[in-house]
Design a protein around this nucleic acid. Structure first.
Lengths: 342, 342
DNA sequence: ATTATTTATGAAAACGTTTTCATATAATTA
DNA sequence: TAATTATATGAAAACGTTTTCATAAATAAT
């Protein structure tokens, strides 16, 4: 295909010539400018269709300084939560005529920085980011903010104010409810498998855990709180440690569902009966939690609500660029989904 | 944030002025052009960093007619197979300095057409597409091809030649192996839950199914082959029909894993023992198939191999745009993963 | 020392739009 | 009818690069 003769693309000048009009009028007609005759508009549209004209976004964006493109940086699109958020955002933006460039950081800070630079180079009209679990320095976003490009952080958000809009889940409440539920179903010896404390997510879920424990006057055993990357291997390792001691837990709250699944599988392997001997609560309502046997109690985060809210505030501030849009963090409520594991 | 004073971005002219050089030299230095002195290059790079300069991709792309951007259209990023392919492609392209714009068609033909137009407007250097199950008219890709933009179809590909490169799984062999496996484990009454015949995927998997049956001289019951959208509901509906008759199947081959899961759950609900009473084979090796009890035998498609191959041929043809790159369809091998359901 | 070649730089055009400013025509008002 | 206003269009500049062409400076060849 590459060696076939390339067909010259028609530009606005070709339409202008065909209709004996100036390029300015063509541009205005195509952009539905009020000061152009209806007859002219329809003529232009007809001719554009006939010539197979398609606007060159680079030329347009260069001149008008608007790209109608939003950048998105996400750790991994294959994570169920993010896939859902992205889908909602993309469909929402599409309705408003905006496109989305989706990038994955693979949870690497270096990659996140690089992608931010690239998206700035592309002059996206706005940037949405779910940061790496290890991002503590957010200065790579400064360039965008200085430039007046709105930035939206969701899920994994900066711990201090940057002048960006923040949309996050109610992680404290999630941790609190998950733990309270374990306590209410009879657990007294509860372990917590959590993620790195560099992330707001795990800080808050852990605080919720501790709050629930204290409120029910159950002593918190520091050795039973694990802050580590939430991989299946790490979860198994934690389980091994927990169950090699004299006193073993009767309840486990994990900060994601992969860990909950790993914990459940480990428990089954060592002959425990879940939920009789051990109860487990995960986080995120990953589709796997409802399929595994026993199904796992987890915390629903409503990713579609994240997406909807992001589109709402983003479109609002793109449509009214001069308004003061500094808002307090937006919190998306969570809900405990009770299943067979508790 | 939007109302803060916008900082004027530095351009190539600012660097030129600061160094008392012409913009042409700056451009050449930044692009590592051979005809520029080493000293000048390093001066320019230093000054660019100092001024926080970042190339404007629109200006650059407009002039040079290269965007270093590849478009991707996919039915849904949340499908495990596609998520894996995308991740591999993105990481691969990134290494070569290319960016990826990921778009979802939501399996809507209209959306697919619209996205194709938009990506053309953005003048992507290449387009990768996994089409809708219902795409039979591929003329919306013509524009790109006429323009000399290479197009790559993977997984769901056109049935006739378009002048684009095709990368697909060995669906015939997948269907054949899955069915043979059922037969070899003792099944004689085998049903097939397949997708719409508008897609090459299901045509080929079905052919593989029939071939295996015929080869083992097992009569094919047309009523036991379902061609419908592969939703969980449709799968349950098919199961209901299959098990309301006098003769019921002892083996089921479904063309995706969601259907296999639905079939398994239905079987459990009506009191069947899988794999004793009924054996089930799915397709795609979705993570859920290894978690469910019993785990489901399925066909691994090696999405990462798809991604790698696509990047390979794509980069090759972008680097040598004038070579004849017309290739025969590239077939990615599959592998049967045996699990507890058979 | 002169000419030819290589190396490094600059001036200016070009990419395809949008937008400002000016102006011609049509419609309205005095 | 003349003056004013509203409507519709065009000319030309602008956006920030890259690239062609020309040329100056440095080096090599005669």
């Amino acid at each position: 295909m590459a060696n076939e003769k390339k067909v010259q693309q028609n530009t606005i000048l070709d339409i202008a010539e065909a209709l004996k009009l100036s390029p300015a009028t063509i541009s205005r007609a195509l952009n539905n400018h009020p000061h152009v005759k209806e007859k002219t508009k329809s003529d232009v549209l007809k001719m554009a269709a006939q010539l197979g004209y398609r606007r060159n976004n680079m030329a347009s964006g260069l001149r008008s300084n608007k790209t109608y493109t939003v950048g998105l940086i996400v750790p991994r699109i294959s994570m169920f939560f993010h896939a859902e958020v992205i889908t909602t955002i993309q469909n929402g933006l599409h309705k408003h005529g905006y496109n989305l460039i989706i990038c994955q950081s693979n949870d690497s800070v270096t990659m996140e920085k690089e992608l931010t630079e690239i998206l700035f180079s592309s002059r996206v009209d706005a940037l949405i980011a779910a940061c790496t679990l290890f991002t503590t320095d957010f200065s790579h976003f400064d360039k965008l903010l200085e430039n007046g490009t709105p930035v939206y952080f969701y899920d994994r958000v900066p711990l201090h104010d940057l002048g960006a809009t923040i949309i996050k889940g109610d992680d404290f409440r999630g941790g609190y409810m998950a733990t309270s539920h374990l306590i209410e179903t009879g657990c007294r010896k509860i372990a917590h498998i959590s993620g790195p404390l560099t992330s707001n997510l795990y800080q808050n879920r852990s605080s919720g855990f501790i709050k629930a424990m204290e409120q029910h006057q159950i002593p918190v055993n520091e050795d039973w709180i694990f802050h580590q990357e939430l991989t299946q291997n790490n979860a198994r390792e934690a389980m091994r440690k927990l169950f090699e001691g004299d006193i073993v837990p009767d309840g486990i709250f994990t900060d994601n569902d992969s860990s909950a699944i790993a914990a459940l599988e480990y428990a089954k392997e060592i002959g425990l009966n879940v939920p009789v001997d051990l109860k487990i609560v995960g986080y995120s309502n990953d589709p796997r939690t409802s399929i595994i046997n026993p199904s796992i109690t987890t915390v629903e985060q409503f990713p579609a609500d994240f997406g909807k809210k992001i589109v709402e505030v983003l479109i609002d501030s793109l449509k009214n660029p001069n308004e003061i849009t500094k808002t307090a963090p937006i919190i998306i409520p969570i809900q405990l989904i009770r299943r067979m594991s508790t």
